[in-house]
């Protein structure tokens, strides 16, 4: 464990707390993509299936349970919560996710760390899917132009978590002799790159104070 990874995990937890606060606390799903929420639920339910046999680290075990629980809670409220459904904009949240899920599934089968292990295929699928899972959310924000304050902090924290993981992989590459995780590096690079445009506008808008809403052209 190193500081980058720890901060990355904390940023990830923060993104969940912000989203739960908005959807469950604020009873509003305005500007939030259900498609992204559902893809993240798939990402965690597939990647953390090793909860059933991998007890190597209590820290990981607890956070895996937390991430699966939080992502399923978000999907549940967005699908069945009366006020959440009323504020969710289904026709704007229209990114064709089948064009994301299918290629990731093919890549997961073809490019993974152990072609004899179904779990490695599922694990690789989950890594690839996470890299693109934010697209429907960014697509929705782009369409709406204006990003509500809490939503902008949620997306920022979610983007920051994987950016911190990139630093964590660089750190581990330099400090651990034969550490190499090409699959997560490349996926994490793609994932973080997708946020660059948002990060730029987030920084521009927050320069003048944390409560300004983010404007996307």
């Amino acid at each position: 464990m190193n500081i980058f990874r720890f901060l990355g995990d904390m940023s990830h937890i923060l993104s969940f707390l912000l989203l739960l606060h908005k959807i469950v606390g604020g009873k509003s799903a305005a500007g939030i993509s259900l498609r992204t929420a559902e893809m993240y639920a798939i990402v965690f339910c597939t990647r953390y299936i090793d909860l059933l046999w991998n007890f190597a680290s209590l820290y990981n075990y607890l956070l895996k349970l937390l991430f699966i629980g939080a992502s399923l809670t978000i999907v549940y409220f967005m699908r069945y919560g009366p006020s959440q459904k009323a504020t969710y904009n289904a026709d704007e949240d229209a990114f064709p996710v089948q064009y994301l899920i299918a290629p990731c599934a093919v890549l997961g089968v073809l490019i993974n760390q152990d072609h004899s292990s179904p779990f490695e295929m599922v694990w690789a699928f989950s890594i690839y899917l996470e890299a693109v899972a934010i697209l429907p959310q960014l697509f929705l924000l782009q369409k709406q132009g204006e990003v509500e304050n809490l939503t902008s902090h949620y997306v920022f924290a979610l983007g920051a978590y994987r950016a911190l993981y990139l630093l964590n992989w660089m750190f581990r590459f330099m400090t651990e002799p034969d550490y190499q995780q090409r699959i997560v590096w490349l996926s994490g690079l793609v994932q973080t790159a997708l946020y660059c445009d948002f990060f730029y506008h987030y920084y521009q808008s927050k320069k003048g104070g944390l409560n300004k809403s983010v404007k996307l052209p």
């Binding site: 990981n60 991430f67 292990s117 964590n168 190499q180």
Partner: peptide, 10 residues
């Protein structure tokens, strides 16, 4: 192929 690194990260 690289031996399957055990997945010690989230």
């Amino acid at each position: 192929a690289a031996e399957a690194e055990e997945h010690d990260e989230l």
